[in-house]
Amino acid sequence: MSSYDQPLIHAHELTKVYGQHVAADRVTFAVRPGEIFGFLGPNGAGKTTTIKMLIGLLRPTSGAALIGGYDIAREPLKAKALIGYVPDQPQLPDKLTAREFLQFVAGLYRLDPAQAQRRGEELLELFSLADRGDDLVGGFSHGMRQKIALSGALIHDPKAFFLDEPTVGLDPRSARLIKDILRQAASQGTAIMLTTHILEIAERMCDRVGIINGGKLIAVGTVDELRHGSDGSLEDIFLALTGGTEYQQQLELSEERA
């Protein structure tokens, strides 16, 4: 991890309300350069809503999302130029080939075409997609789309990298590759925020984790800090904080009834 300077990703009291439902409730945290921040929570806890507010896909009801010091609501273009984003289900233009897709993304980020082409080829090689580079993205499997989306997100060397469930649908080799890429990006000063349900990934990869439940950020810190000196795993901490242990009791009760 590199030195911690000013946070590259800063969520300040981010709130999102849909009618009566509060999807995110004054969520506040910061991710510094070189840090990998894991964002955990049960289904529907507000993880994706928070990420989408940070990258400008959703407008917060209140609060602010700052990327590299730029408020994404006030200076969206400066903030977005620093962002890389990979959604959990990457929807890509089906009728572009992988190479054309990278060229398209490079154009959107105003990269030098020749440099972008070199970088694109490197990324295709890295993800073992060079021989499929002239195939239409529409014919790719979920894992291959995920890799292409990752390549598109990395082509402009983002300073703030957001990944929503990055390893879902990937084979172990690709999942390992993504972990290595994230570590390398972090070592070069990129701030990384990822959501995951795989607690083992969060425990091994993340410098700090935040746990969100019911739209509220209920814990932030390193895994050791969250343990409070106990020897429980991240899974135990997670279940204790999000109320997962009661399921075990319900399960036992229903077994007894059966």
Binding site: D94, T97, R99, E100, Q103, A106, G107, L108, R110, P113, A114, A116, Q117, G133, D134, D135, L136, G138, G139, F140, S141
Partner: peptide
Amino acid sequence: SGETRRKRKSAAPAQTRRQLGGWRGQ
């Protein structure tokens, strides 16, 4: 089965295309 795998001609080398500057380029 996915979409038929069909080789396409590679996109024109990027450096040969003239790109406009600023938002016009986008």
